[in-house]
Design a protein around this nucleic acid. Structure first.
Length: 421
RNA sequence: GGAGAGGUGGCCGAGUUGGCUGAAGGCGGCUGCCUGCUAAGCAGUUGUACGGGUUUAAUGCUUGUACCCCGGGUUCGAAUCCCGGCCUCUCCGCCA
């Protein structure tokens, strides 16, 4: 959520920033409601002040056995006006909030200006694309030939987009998750979290999925709970409505979670195999930081995710998203993409964002420094999501005979050096 | 799912015949005094949000309103009374 005071004092900054994101914000409307709201609040505060004063007088009069009926009848009228005004104020507040909660974050000055992913910038490309001297198979064939994933039975159980990992496939998935968590906790200093896989309306509003993107999530009607689309949601909300001590910053959490996404409206896109699925596993990195540090920390988070890919010796590249491609809540974002040799495409496995105080305002995540309270900055990044990692791992580590080599760092976790049928 | 208890400031904990309680008391925190250092002691101070006025380079000062789980209601006036909801705990049932 944007700071209403900032919009008030510098509306052009907001308008231009949002324009870069491709959004026509209703700033005029926001300012008008804000003005009316404050005016009415002032009037009503004065009435309430009078009521408080006179009520004390009434109390005294009664104590001294004096007649208070005139004051009481006066205050009856005042009370009525207050009630009417309070209702009106609530209406203004509701519409102001609706506007503010639906207004996206402003891009950071350093984000490249552009309208679509075509304007994204490749920051660096690491690792060499493998050269194969045989005709390679794609991940689906590799997974099915080696009995790692049973897509058909997964679909039987829950529908397409719900892969069923079996045998060594299940074990490899688990090895990857464990490996990533270990690196982030022991080498990068994150505290491990295993969060709830469902979150309520307030929590999903904090991170920005609600109110606009509710349709992307699975919703349990009876309990008013969303299945988490990412661990970002539960983990960012750990400190919802808290005032942290500046000494405790930065707070660094890493969390494994299942991720559930309806992917509505993307039928027909990347539907084969693991590319775009409804349930997947991800290890997430979340940090709560001092506002002065958040852009430094964004680079740190990208590096943390890259470490995993470097150690796995998979070729990847880092993309800086242009303003038009930034998500609703983020000010600046890097994507990391892995190279899939079978499809000859780059596949996104991580998205690292700085939200500045956007989520913190929605969720009331603050910190105290020198007796002053301020909003923290929140960031997160995938470290990383498993499905496309699995795709590129299988494809890059396949051998001519159809077997799959296990990357060195995963061997202790997987227990074997190769998968061979 | 059934029965009961309860939700007060950073924490503990008073306050439920409605008014003088933003909230006693204690702990913790901060400031000053004291002290060779530490501890103890003494004095003061100590919530958040949103406004108004004044002021500064940053800041500060002052004033108002709201907040005792959330939302309604009664009343001139509610932490205190009434209704609805949420959450926590205990017991029973069910269950991985």
């Amino acid at each position: 959520m944007l700071d209403i005071k900032r919009i008030r004092t510098n509306p052009d900054e907001t308008i231009n920033g949002l324009k870069n994101k491709g959004v026509d914000a209703e700033i005029d409307n926001i300012l008008e409601i804000d003005k009316k709201l404050r005016q009415l609040e002032n009037e009503t505060d004065e009435l309430k002040h009078r009521r408080n004063v006179v009520s004390k007088e009434i109390s005294l009069k009664k104590k001294n056995k004096k007649d208070a009926s005139k004051s009481i009848s006066d205050m009856q009228k005042v009370a009525k006006t207050i009630k009417v005004n309070d209702n009106e104020i609530q209406k203004y507040k509701n519409s102001l909030n609706e506007l503010l909660f639906n207004t996206p974050n402003i891009p950071h000055r350093s984000a490249p200006i552009g309208t679509s992913e075509k304007n994204n910038v490749v920051v660096r490309e690491i690792g060499k694309k493998n050269e194969f001297n045989f005709s390679i198979k794609d991940h689906i064939e590799l997974a099915e030939n080696n009995s790692l994933i049973d897509f058909e039975r997964g679909a039987k159980i829950a529908g397409s987009g719900f892969p069923l990992y079996t045998g060594e496939g299940a074990k490899l998935e688990r090895a990857i998750i464990n490996y990533m968590l270990d690196v982030h906790t022991t080498e990068h200093g994150y505290k491990e979290i295993l969060p709830p896989f469902m979150a309520n309306i307030k929590s999903t509003t904090t991170t920005g999925q609600l109110p606009k993107f509710g349709d992307d999530m699975y919703f349990i009607n009876e309990d008013e709970l969303y299945l988490v689309p990412t661990a970002e949601v539960p983990v960012t909300n750990i400190h919802q409505e808290e005032i942290l001590d500046v000494k405790d910053l930065p707070i660094k959490y890493t969390a494994y979670s299942g991720c559930f996404r309806r992917e509505a409206g993307s039928y027909g896109k990347d539907t084969r195999g693991l590319q775009r699925i409804h349930q997947f596993n991800k290890v997430e990195l979340v940090q709560f930081v001092h506002p002065d540090k958040s852009y430094e920390v964004l680079e740190e988070i990208v590096n943390n995710a890259e470490t995993i890919l470097k150690n796995l010796k998979l070729p990847y590249r880092v993309i800086e998203l242009c303003t038009g491609d930034l998500s609703f809540a983020s000010s600046k974002c890097y994507d990391i993409e892995l190279w899939s040799p079978a499809t000859e495409k780059w596949l996104e496995v991580s998205s690292c964002s700085n939200f500045e105080d956007f989520q913190a305002r929605r969720g009331g995540i603050k910190f105290r420094e020198n007796n002053k309270v301020n909003f923290a900055h929140t960031l997160n990044g995938s470290g990383v999501a498993t499905p496309r990692l699995m795709i590129t791992l299988l494809e890059n580590y396949q051998r001519k005979d159809g077997s799959i080599e296990i990357p060195e760092v995963l061997v202790p976790y997987f227990g074997k050096k190769e998968i061979r049928k």
